[in-house]
Write a protein that binds this DNA or RNA. Structure first.
Lengths: 200, 200
DNA sequence: GTCTATACTTGGATAGAC
DNA sequence: GTCTATCCAAGTATAGAC
């Protein structure tokens, strides 16, 4: 493989990804066909399969890119973050909301992909539990320290994650939103959850 | 149209609906093809279109049936329900959870249908706002009476609805759930939201 | 109203030339 | 690696006999 050829290949892959990101937001992951992506990227159908085995692998690649970029912000949480502190809770929520906002194409695609799966697969619960694993640990840490929670962390964490994910999806895919800024939404959620977890 | 013929027609429609309900839970709304439904119902493809113009109309019919049955429980809320009362809040959540549980086929189908729509359509937000309209009014009623809420009802209501809907979807479509009974889940959500709304 | 048979469309995937 | 051309499977929807 020559250097030029390699570069051209990289450009094609990047073009396909970029086109996919744009289309995933506009039409959604499910309604975007591979031919739509190649057309938008100015590439041929055959070329697509030289880079990805299918739409799912493309999504996996996008997800990988996302983790590389914004992943650090989410992953590197010290286990002893104190969510009973209002400012820390707000910061947490703000980071999560921001990651959603910054990576909307991937978020939309993952959300659609998850919900479109066979209900019997149980994927929705599995994804939700996995994605809120760290939050669950935070809550368990609070409980271990004698903090009185309104319920078991293994249901509270997924519940909070469900609220955040679903609400973010709804808000970020409409023009007719609640008429509130991101900061105002985060503030409202902070109030609800802070009092909810700590009782005032 | 003879009486016999009419009866037979009614049976076919019922058989199609019943088959659809079953398949929507097993495979989901999106993955269930019209041919799957007719096959499961022991009817022909052509016959299907004599009763419904397509899958969406079938879903609308199922939704209509559901409203007729369980609708009363949800719709007939006096506007002045006091959600700051823990027992009333729990009862509310329990009713909603129960409706989801009792009508899982329709709930799954609607959820999938909503999420599969073009993100740009803003349907997710619209549905969420509509479905939590009454809750929003309840909260506004509280606010009018001087109750201090953690944020504007127009974002709190959708947020609560998002949590309930997404969590119910996840929990009810898995065998590996949180290991809690419905009552225990409702109790945990009650605790979280009651304190969240009222501050202890 | 219901059936069988089939036309039609979409979209995924590959073959082979360049 | 990329392209054009094409095959093929899946599903929707209709036509026409009963």
């Amino acid at each position: 493989m020559t250097g030029v050829r390699k570069r051209r290949a990289g450009e094609t892959e990047a073009a396909l990804k970029e086109a996919a990101r744009r289309l995933f937001v506009e039409r959604g992951f499910l309604n975007t066909k591979i031919t739509d992506i190649t057309k938008a990227a100015g590439r041929s159908t055959g070329s697509f399969y030289e880079h990805f085995t299918g739409k799912d692998e493309l999504l996996a690649a996008l997800l990988s890119d996302m983790r590389g970029a914004a992943g650090a912000a989410i992953t590197e949480h010290p286990r002893d973050h104190d969510l009973s502190d209002r400012d820390e809770l707000r910061a947490h929520l703000a980071v999560a909301w921001g990651v959603f906002r910054e990576n909307l194409p991937v978020v939309v695609a993952l959300f659609q992909s998850m919900v479109a799966d066979e209900p019997g697969s149980g994927r929705a619960w599995r994804d939700l539990a996995t994605d809120t694993d760290m939050l669950r640990e935070h809550l368990e840490w609070l409980a271990e320290r004698g903090h009185a929670l309104p319920g078991p962390p293994r249901i509270l964490a997924p519940a909070m994650g469900a609220m955040l994910a679903m609400l973010a999806y709804a808000v970020m895919t409409t023009d007719e939103g609640p008429g509130l800024s991101d900061a105002e939404i985060v503030e409202a959620l902070t109030g609800l959850l802070h009092k909810g977890l700590n009782g005032d």
